[in-house]
């Protein structure tokens, strides 16, 4: 039960997008629709889970001074795996996410968890943490993607519910900043109200 806490922490208390504000580039760039956001979240989760496990196993043997480059190599290897798998099985999504798949390497969430969590905890705990943070990230991205898709394209998960045009600006670049900004306001407000109650 106590181990389970690591999983829940990653989703709520340490939510990478709304609480830690990490990994902003893919968050803003790939959330043009709910499906794209979810795809990016899942890809990141796969990398995070694998790299967390391997790094927690390797941590005792890696000399402290060169640990960051070593982590980066491990992460880059898993990113390449994910990239090749996506290219083979979901070519459409691979095309849309484009450059942001290789850029998972420099996503601060992945390296951040390796440095802050995986190198001090056991394999199981690191796996749970990776899974939790991954789910938190995926949920946040899907949520932002859904809002942008509904406002910008009048559709949800690619099912159009109205034939008229949406507010295109929400699918374009400025909309990403605005939607994320206002969602954060909503989160702060809800957190505040919970504290007062």
């Amino acid at each position: 039960m106590s181990k389970f806490k690591y999983l829940i922490d990653g989703i709520v208390k340490n939510n990478p997008t709304f609480v830690l504000v990490l990994g902003m580039c893919p968050t803003l760039a790939t959330t043009t629709s709910a499906v794209n956001g979810m795809g990016m979240g899942l890809a990141t989760m796969a990398v995070l889970l694998c790299s967390n496990m391997v790094i927690s196993l390797l941590a005792p043997v890696i000399p402290n001074k060169v640990r960051i480059p070593c982590y980066i190599v491990v992460i880059a290897a898993f990113v390449t795996v994910v990239q090749l798998v996506m290219q083979a099985y979901t070519p459409g999504l691979y095309e849309t996410l484009g450059i942001f798949i290789p850029l998972i390497v420099v996503n601060c969430i992945v390296l951040g968890r390796a440095e802050a969590f995986a190198n001090k905890h056991s394999v199981l705990e690191s796996a749970l943490d990776g899974l939790g943070i991954g789910i938190g990230f995926t949920l946040a991205l899907t949520c932002i993607g859904l809002v942008r898709e509904v406002l910008g394209n009048l559709s949800a998960f690619e099912n159009k519910f109205s034939s008229s045009d949406g507010m295109l600006v929400f699918v374009l670049a400025p909309g990403a900043f605005l939607v994320l900004g206002y969602l954060m306001v909503l989160f702060n407000k809800l957190k505040d109200r919970k504290k007062k109650a």
């Binding site: 504000v21 600006v169 670049a173 400025p174 909309g175 990403a176 900043f177 605005l178 994320l180 900004g181 206002y182 954060m184 306001v185 702060n188 407000k189 505040d192």
Partner: peptide
């Protein structure tokens, strides 16, 4: 208060992007 910090920065960036 709810807009302080990152949210207002993001909204400003959104306007700049516009």
């Amino acid at each position: 208060k709810a807009l302080k910090g990152t949210p207002i920065a993001l909204i400003t960036a959104g306007l700049l992007a516009l």
